[in-house]
Nucleic acid binder design. Structure first.
Lengths: 325, 325
DNA sequence: ACTTTATCTGTAACCGGTTACACATAGAGG
DNA sequence: CCTCTATGTGTAACCGGTTACAGATAAAGT
């Protein structure tokens, strides 16, 4: 490994001088700078971030904690975060928590141990005490909180919108799929939908589910039609479940959207590719990731007047699983 | 931040002793150990990985470079890698390269600067010189190479299998979708299919595509049916494109699999949820990730007799877009 | 001509760990 | 009783950077 000492020797100066040209601070003579630059190029030197991080007590690393990168909503978030951060020179330490407290704690500890300058987390245990003890900039993503800056889309609004849409389009016997209880945003959109449904002039029923995974989605879809065979409007807990429901509906010979309308949530990329294309409530995942990263960077740089919370707009995307009016 | 010195003071011993109990090496008296443990618990101390990494010249970090986490094939790989690594106490530094050389170089440099102990890369520029200069354990994932250990599935075999399947099931005018030229595995499976098709007794044509993205997939599908409206068997370049083609076929009133059979590649989770469910050539992505991580760990630990290359089996998954015989 | 100030550079301390080495003590073996 | 070895602990150097501080020189101000 070539170190700053090697460069110093090659350039015939001290390490302090090399460090000055590297960081472009302090006084350095023009020709000295040139010699150093040449030595750096000659030796193909690049500074050891670990040493720098140790002295400065901060790295250029940022910790990103997601529930599960395998769920297609999260790669979008992650990508938004990464694009924004990498443009600003930060790098990503990634963890999947599976909504498991122990894993979450482990990753948080890793982040701290590695001197990350900030953390972005999309998990549900933010009220756990380890976060309190943390004196690091923290931004919640896809989660809201009183105590920390956060970027999220309005779940209640989304739920409201989904329900309104189905009602407006004439659904009479709506089935609402309730997402996992321990996932906050799932509950928000559920409550939003309930709010709208309870005051509207329609029948509705609720199907409780406990996961978002691909493996289980089909099971929920089957259960739904077994329990509520004559439903004519379904609000899915997310697009994965929505697509599974569309699939199962067709399998059972139902016409979409004539017999049954289905509305998803998230607008993951594959919703555009499903058949028929899935109507859904869009969350701007990629942009949410970017905003979270921006917010974190501003917090890190201690810029004044940084917003505590950014609520992203939720939007109805009408495709082919809802009627044309 | 609480440091080893604080612990030493609290326990009334030297930092060396604390370090010895932390690492469980050297001699430490039983009661001294107890005092130190108590101090650690008392102060809620956890060692600074950065300092450790600096002295030892190695961290517990591993760099993972992927083309694009947003493509649903890669989260599977990433998750496999992560699960295996985190069980072994390693953590992940993640980068998306977009198959862009500059980004790739930047990330490799970051990895080196952060003292990663190994790198797993799923990109196409492995022959670029920066990898040669690297004296770090390196494992290729979803890519083959003469020069580095690699974990990949047999693309040629997969292509062969896809073509054989369609032929056996009676397709007469097959369209082969050729993936992006710069993506190696895409070319392997393309060549495998060509190999089979050329010697079989069927007509076939080729549609060249230049991306795998969701945005473009539908465009390819439209182009395909515009150019080859009477094709009755399609080998898609991957599942995303495959699903888009299924979608477009239905849109154009074709019956699947009666009028046209379609076979995808990868077996991403959503292929099971498409309608009709997509027949495809499965690559065991999650397991590939795990194997790559295992291989890397063994290389890092310098275990003897580590295989250079692991070729994972490719498998036909028959679902509803191919005929029952 | 003398002080002041700006510019340039090097020495050494420091970040928080790990470990080589020295030293002390105690029990074992002769 | 004396040596030898095993055990236990502390001191200080070290990893590769950054930066406070000091010293040197030259230009500017009076």
């Amino acid at each position: 490994m070539v170190t700053i000492k090697d460069v110093a020797r090659e350039a015939g100066v001290s390490v302090a001088t090399v460090s000055r040209v590297l960081n472009d601070n302090g006084y350095v003579g023009a020709d000295t700078r040139k010699k150093v630059m040449e030595a750096i190029a000659e030796l193909n030197y690049s500074p050891n971030e670990v040493a720098r991080s140790l002295y400065k007590r901060e790295s250029r690393l940022i910790g990103l904690l997601l529930p599960d990168i395998t769920n297609p909503f999260f790669p979008q978030l992650a990508r938004g975060v990464e694009d924004e951060l990498s443009e600003a020179g930060y790098r990503l330490l990634l963890g999947n928590s599976d909504e498991n407290i122990q894993k979450e704690l482990d990753y948080i500890q890793t982040f701290v141990q590695n001197n990350v300058v900030g953390i972005i987390t999309a998990t549900n245990h933010v009220d756990y005490k380890i976060y309190e003890a943390l004196d690091l900039p923290l931004v919640l993503l896809d989660r809201a909180s009183e105590n920390y800056p956060a970027v999220y889309a309005d779940g209640r609004e989304g739920g409201l919108l989904a329900a309104k849409t189905l009602i407006k389009k004439g659904a009479q016997r709506i089935t609402l799929v309730k997402g996992p209880t321990n996932i906050k945003p799932a509950q928000d959109r559920y409550k939003g939908a309930i709010e709208e449904l309870s005051q509207a002039d329609v029948d509705f029923s609720v199907l409780s589910t406990t996961s978002y995974s691909f493996e289980d989605a089909q099971g929920w879809a089957e259960e739904l039609f077994d329990k509520f065979p004559d439903t004519d409007g379904i609000i899915a807990s997310n697009d994965i479940v929505g697509i599974a429901i569309v699939h199962e509906a067709l399998e059972r010979g139902k016409r979409i959207p004539e017999d049954v309308q289905i509305i998803g949530y998230d607008d993951i990329p594959q919703s555009r590719l499903s058949y028929p294309t899935l109507s859904t409530i869009r969350q701007p995942a990629y942009e949410m990731g970017r905003e979270a990263a921006k917010l974190l960077i501003r917090t890190i740089k201690k810029e004044p007047g940084v917003e505590q919370t950014i609520q992203m707009p939720v939007e109805l995307v009408e495709r082919k699983t809802t009627r044309k009016e």
